[in-house]
């Protein structure tokens, strides 16, 4: 019984959201606001049980790891948000996570994005026995990277040689975006099929 009720409720909300495709209407409005409210509530539930109980309560109260009182106090500075005069206090936890994140990030970005990618670009020809077509393709890859970087130069006007190279660069970028678009289509349609299957099979039992 409880599953049947669940299916009907789920079907109602599925249709309510789909109705937005026709136009905005009270059903969609109702579903949308309920979704926003519930999703925040869901977040509260998860954070309470997993984060607060799991990371704060159990380590400090049960396991006596009193060192975790320090981050807890820092976190409580977010309470400064509640009053205009103390609102600057929230800058402290923000600055801590920001400082750590950015400082640690710089060498990592260098390593993973610049060094690794550059190495991959330089070693493209290091495969013995490449045929003519493979060499042309690989050369295209290098030209593509090179010209597309030129497109991202902000110090130069896109005129003359730079203009031509930047143009070639943007062509490569566009082919890349076209490929991303084409690849994504299948995933999105899969999701629609999933919803239709729910409606036709689980709810209406139109198909076996």
């Amino acid at each position: 019984m409880i599953t049947i009720i669940g299916t009907w409720i789920a079907a109602f909300f599925t249709l309510a959201i789909f109705s937005f495709l026709y136009k905005d209407n009270p059903f969609y409005k109702f579903a949308e606001h309920l979704l926003v409210g519930i999703s925040v509530g869901y977040g509260i539930g998860l954070i309470w049980h997993n984060a607060f109980i799991g990371y704060v309560w159990i380590p400090i109260i049960n396991n006596h790891q009193y060192i975790y009182i320090i981050p807890t106090l820092i976190g409580l500075l977010y309470l400064g948000f509640l009053h205009k005069k103390t609102i600057w206090l929230i800058r402290i936890p923000i600055s801590i996570s920001l400082g750590i994140g950015t400082g640690f990030g710089v060498p990592l970005i260098f390593q993973t994005y610049i060094f690794t990618q550059l190495r991959e670009t330089l070693t493209v020809f290091n495969h013995p026995g490449m045929g003519f077509w493979a060499i042309v393709s690989t050369a295209l890859l290098v030209i593509g990277v090179f010209t597309a970087i030129i497109y991202f130069f902000f110090s130069w006007k896109h005129k003359g040689t730079v203009g031509v190279l930047a143009k070639i660069g943007i062509y490569f970028l566009m082919i890349g975006f076209g490929a991303s678009f084409g690849l994504t289509v299948m995933g999105r349609i899969s999701l629609l099929i999933g919803r239709f299957l729910f409606l036709f099979k689980d709810w209406l039992h139109l198909i076996g």
Binding site: L98, G99, T102, G103, G105, V106, I109, F110, Y113, I114, Q117, E120, T121, S137, T138, L140, L141, V142, I143, G144, V145, A148, I149, Y151, F152, G169, F172, L173, M174, I175, G176, F177, A179, S180, L183
Partner: peptide, 28 residues
């Protein structure tokens, strides 16, 4: 996917990495 797509994504990665590093340093 292998050739023009890789080229374009790689160029974007270089740019984004540079922008990311600059933004991080500006904040620090």
């Amino acid at each position: 996917l292998d050739i023009p797509n890789t080229a374009s994504k790689r160029a974007i990665v270089f740019g984004v990495a540079m922008g990311g590093i600059a933004t991080s340093l500006k904040i620090v």
